[in-house]
C-alpha cells in the first residue's frame, strides 16, 4: 500500500513541469520512503532519510530554485527513445531480480556471512548499527566523513564570492 503511494508520487513527479511542485513532491517522497524504511526495521536509516531528504535537501533545492528559474521548458524531443530505453533496462533488471533470494528469507546469504558476529555484541553497545558504523567499519566511516567534507569544500570553491579584482576573470558571459 505504502509502496503504491510512493509509486504514484514518483509518476506525478515525472510529469509535473513546475519545479516548485517537483521540490515539494520530492519532500513528500522522502517522508514516504522514511516510513517504508521503518517498516523494514531500519530505524536509524529512516531517521536520517526524514531529516536529510525531507529537511535539508528540500531547503537546498528551494535555495537553488530561488537562484534559477522555477519553470521547466517544454520538452523539445519526443519521449519515446528515453522511455523505451528505460523500459528495456527495467525488463532486464526484473529478469535479473527473479534470480535473487526471496524477500525475508532467513537462509539468504546476506544473513549468513558476518552478521551473526556483529549481533553477538562484542563491544557491548546495544545499538548494533552504531557499533558497526563506528567500530567494526571505522575506516569506512572515516572515508564517508572525508567525502562529506570534500563535498562541502567543493561547494565553497564553486559558490564563494571572489573579491572584485581588476581585469575580470568572469569568462564568457
Amino acid at each position: 500500500m505504502l509502496l503504491v503511494l510512493v509509486a504514484i508520487v514518483v509518476l506525478v513527479l515525472a510529469s509535473v513541469r513546475n519545479l516548485f511542485a517537483v521540490v515539494v513532491l520530492s519532500g513528500i517522497y522522502s517522508f514516504l520512503m522514511a516510513t517504508v524504511m521503518v517498516a523494514l526495521d531500519a530505524v536509524d536509516v529512516a531517521m536520517t532519510e526524514a531529516a536529510v531528504g525531507a529537511g535539508i535537501s528540500t531547503v537546498l533545492l528551494l535555495g537553488a530554485l530561488h537562484l534559477c528559474k522555477s519553470e521547466e521548458a517544454k520538452p523539445t524531443h519526443r519521449p519515446w527513445l528515453p522511455l523505451s530505453l528505460s523500459l528495456a533496462t527495467g525488463v532486464l533488471l526484473i529478469y535479473g531480480a527473479m534470480g535473487l533470494p526471496d524477500f525475508a528469507d532467513p537462509q539468504a546469504p546476506i544473513h549468513q556471512h558476518v552478521v551473526p558476529r556483529y549481533l553477538q555484541n562484542e563491544v557491548q553497545v546495544p545499538n548494533v548499527v552504531t557499533a558497526v558504523l563506528a567500530s567494526f567499519r571505522g575506516y569506512d566511516t572515516l572515508g564517508e566523513t572525508t567525502v562529506v567534507f570534500t563535498a562541502g569544500a567543493g561547494v565553497i570553491a564553486l559558490l564563494r564570492r571572489r573579491k572584485p579584482r581588476k581585469g575580470g576573470e568572469e569568462g564568457r558571459g
Partner: peptide
C-alpha cells in the same frame, strides 16, 4: 546513539 536509534550523522543533520 549507543542505546537507541541515532548517532553522529543524524545528530549533525538535525
Amino acid at each position: 546513539g549507543d542505546y537507541g536509534p541515532g548517532g553522529g550523522f543524524q545528530a549533525g543533520v538535525i
